[in-house]
Write a protein that binds this DNA or RNA. Structure first.
Lengths: 222, 222
DNA sequence: CTCAAAATATGAGATATCTCATATTATTTG
DNA sequence: CAAATAATATGAGATATCTCATATTTTGAG
C-alpha cells in the first residue's frame, strides 16, 4: 500500500472534486491510498481507521463462514464507499476487502471526521443513495439465488463480464461469488459448451449463442 | 386501510415524537395510517405516494419472480421505513408490502416533502443507519443461504420465532422466507421431529432439544 | 352456513448441487 | 530457478432440494 504525498496527492484532490462529497473541508487529514491487486484494504475482523471512497479500481468484499466457506459478497467499483458500516455502527463485524485491480481511494480518518460527517447532509445524502442501492442489490441477489438455479445466474454473470465475446473470469472467484462449488460451476460450464452456447478456448470461453444466454438471463429483468 | 383524523391522529403524533425523525415541521401533511393483517400497504410494481415510518405492527416485503416464485425478502418492524427507495430513486421496481399484523404508520406525502427530506441531516442520518443495517442483513442472508443448508437456517429461524418453546409459523410464509419448497420444508421439519429436536402438537411444534437447535444455528454467529 | 380457496400433509421420482479423491498446469516467492 | 502454493480439470457417489400428484383440513367471503 502506498500513501500519496505532495504533488501526487494534490493531483487526486483536484481531479476528483471532493466538494461533491462533503460540505466541509477535509483537506487537512484526508489521505490518498493506492493498493495493488490482491492487497487487503481491510482485513476481515479488523476495524478500519478510515472511511474510504474509491476513485479508481475494483475491489471485492469477502466474508468467511464458520464452516470455512468463503463468500464473495460483492464487488466494489469507483465512486463507492468502503468502511461506512464502521463509521455508522460502534459494533460491527468487519468484512474483508481485497483489491482486485490497482485501486486508489480517498481515506478519511474516522477518528477526526466522524462527528462532522454524521451532520453533513450532502455526505449523508450520497451515502444514503449508495446504501439504498447496496441494500436493493443484495436483496435481489438473495432472492434470485434462491429462486433460480446456477444455470440462470451464470448466464447472467457471463453476459455481464464477458469482454468482446470472451468470458475469462477465474473459476475460484466466480464460485465464491455465485456461491456454488467449484465442481458444480465447471459442470454447468461444460453443459453450456455441450449445448453450443460457449466454446472453450484455452482457459477462456467464447460466447457462441448470445440469444441462448440472454434467454436464461432474462428471468432477472426488473 | 384507515386514515386517522382529529383526536386519534394527534394522539399518535404526540406519542411518537416526530421531532426525533425530522428537523422540520411535518404536521401539516403527515398522515397516520392503519392497515389490517393481510392488507397491502404497497402493491408490487405500483409506486407509492408516501414515505412510511412504522409505529406499530409488522409487515412483509415480497417480490414475485418471472417464474412465478414468490420471495419474502424480509420482515419490517416498528421504527423502520417503507418506501424510502422510491423517495431516493426516480426509477425503481417497487416491491409489495403486506401487513402481517395490524400496522400503524406515519405516511409522509413524498410529493410535498421530498426536497426537504433530502436536505435534512437528522432524517438522513436515521435513514442511513436503517439502510446500512438493511444492506448488512441482506448480505448476511444472501451468503448464509448459499453457504448452509436449510437445516441450519431453519433451526435459527425456529429459535428466533418460537414463543415460549412453541414454534407456530405458517409453512407457506416460511417457505417464501427461507426460499425453499413447501415439500422440502416439511421434510426437514419431519427430520427434526425424528431426531427428537421438536415434537409436533397439532399444527405447532414444541421445542424438545434447544441445545441441538442452537448447535445448528451456531454457524451464524458473528 | 356454505362453498371456494388456501393451507397442511405425504409419496415418489427427478435434478441441482456438494464432497472427496486425484492429476495436471500456472503462479508466486525465496 | 526450484519448491510451494493456487488454479484448473475430471470422475464417482452422496445429499439437498425440487416437481408433480393427490388427499385432507382449515379459513375466508358472501
Amino acid at each position: 500500500m502506498e500513501i500519496y504525498k505532495g504533488e501526487k496527492k494534490w493531483l487526486y484532490l483536484q481531479k476528483n472534486s471532493i466538494a461533491d462529497l462533503f460540505s466541509f473541508p477535509v483537506e487537512e487529514f484526508i489521505e490518498v491510498h493506492e493498493y495493488q491487486r490482491n492487497d487487503w484494504i481491510i482485513q476481515e475482523g479488523m476495524r478500519p481507521d478510515f472511511l474510504f471512497y474509491v476513485l479508481e479500481g475494483k475491489a471485492k468484499i469477502y466474508i468467511t463462514h464458520q464452516n470455512g466457506k468463503v463468500s464473495l459478497i460483492n464487488f466494489i467499483n469507483a465512486n463507492e464507499y468502503i468502511g461506512e458500516m464502521e463509521l455508522l455502527h460502534d459494533v460491527y463485524y468487519t468484512k474483508g476487502i481485497q483489491a482486485s485491480t490497482k485501486t486508489i481511494c480517498f481515506a478519511l480518518p474516522i477518528h477526526y471526521y466522524r462527528k462532522q460527517l454524521l451532520e453533513d447532509a450532502k455526505f449523508l445524502r450520497e451515502l444514503t443513495k449508495f446504501l439504498s442501492v447496496k441494500a436493493s442489490v443484495m436483496a435481489a441477489k438473495y432472492t434470485q439465488s434462491l429462486a433460480f438455479p446456477l444455470e440462470n445466474r451464470l448466464a447472467y454473470f457471463i453476459l455481464q463480464t464477458a469482454d468482446e465475446g470472451i468470458y475469462k473470469e477465474g473459476h475460484v472467484t466466480v464460485c465464491d461469488y455465485l456461491g456454488v462449488s467449484y465442481r458444480h460451476l465447471l459442470h454447468v460450464l461444460a453443459q453450456f459448451c455441450d449445448k453450443g452456447y460457449l466454446q472453450k478456448q484455452g482457459r477462456n470461453y467464447q460466447i457462441k449463442q448470445y440469444h441462448s444466454l440472454h434467454e436464461l438471463a432474462e428471468v432477472f429483468k426488473n
